[in-house]
Computed example of a mutant assay.
Amino acid sequence: MNGIALYAQVQSPGTDALVAQNAFLVKRIAYHLMSRLPPSVQVEDMIQAGMVGLLEAARQYDAGQGATFETYAGIRIRGAMLDELRRYDWTPRSVHRKAREVAEAIRAIEARTGRDARDAEVAEQLGLSMDDYHDILRDAQSCRVFSIEELTESGDGVLEECADPSASPSESLVRAGFAEALADAIAGLPERERLVVSLYYEQELNLKEIGEVLGVSESRVCQIQGQAMLRLRARMQGWLDAERMPVKRREARGRRLGA
């Protein structure tokens, strides 16, 4: 059912007021999600899906369950956006699985050796040939190591703020700490990986242009960028693990409130 048809079905003075008062949530959640999505995803699609979620929330909300409408709507909006993303995530699950395995291997090697994990070490730990390992890096870079399942697990900072008015003000400090830790992790990348990340994300060069700067093939740049992304993922895993459990508890609570 599209947004217009759903709106016609649920339209009432009470629904109108709820939608008007909470429409800002749709854009806030959409733009926050966009910072973690591939460039191929259009924010307009996320906003449209989020509006459907908001309308569904207005239709199904039961104040007797004890949750505020903002809490319930935030969860339904984000859920609708994730459902929309699942329709367009054509990356095989095997790519995401292999990327996770590489990140875990990098983390284990660096914890054991106290230095940057080398390509050959990671491939050996995973029982892969160098060609197979480099194929995984290219695949990981091509899908931006983006996974709907991980996005669902790790949660959304804007939603957390909206969904829990009683949340501690220290949460904003935690998020600031995460940003600082990420900046430190990027600064700690091996020189070539750090340069590729800088040229791609800060200077906005494409892979071919970066290859010309470094004097390597576009395929090699793709491998280096994939390695950098997986190394960052490995080094930030502690933060993600720390976030995951409280977010899961909140989402479980949201499902109970909306039941």
Rank of each mutant, 00 (worst) to 15 (best):
A8Y: 07
P13E: 09
A23R: 14
I29D: 04
Y31G: 03
H32W: 13
M34V: 07
M34L: 15
R36Q: 09
Q42W: 06
Q42N: 06
E44Q: 13
A49V: 02
G53A: 09
A58Y: 06
R59N: 11
Y61E: 05
G64K: 10
Y72V: 05
A73T: 08
G74C: 13
I77G: 03
L82C: 03
D83I: 05
R86K: 13
R87E: 06
W90H: 07
T91V: 14
V95E: 11
H96D: 14
A103I: 04
E104T: 12
I106T: 08
A108I: 06
A111C: 01
A123H: 02
E124M: 03
Q125W: 11
G127R: 09
Y133R: 02
A140Q: 01
C143N: 09
R144M: 11
V145M: 11
I148V: 15
T152A: 15
C162I: 08
A176P: 00
L195E: 15
S198D: 14
L199G: 08
Y200M: 12
L205E: 02
E209M: 08
I210R: 03
V213M: 02
V216F: 04
S217I: 06
E218S: 09
R220Y: 12
Q225R: 15
M229D: 11
R235H: 06
M236F: 02
G238T: 07
L257R: 08
G258I: 10
G258N: 13
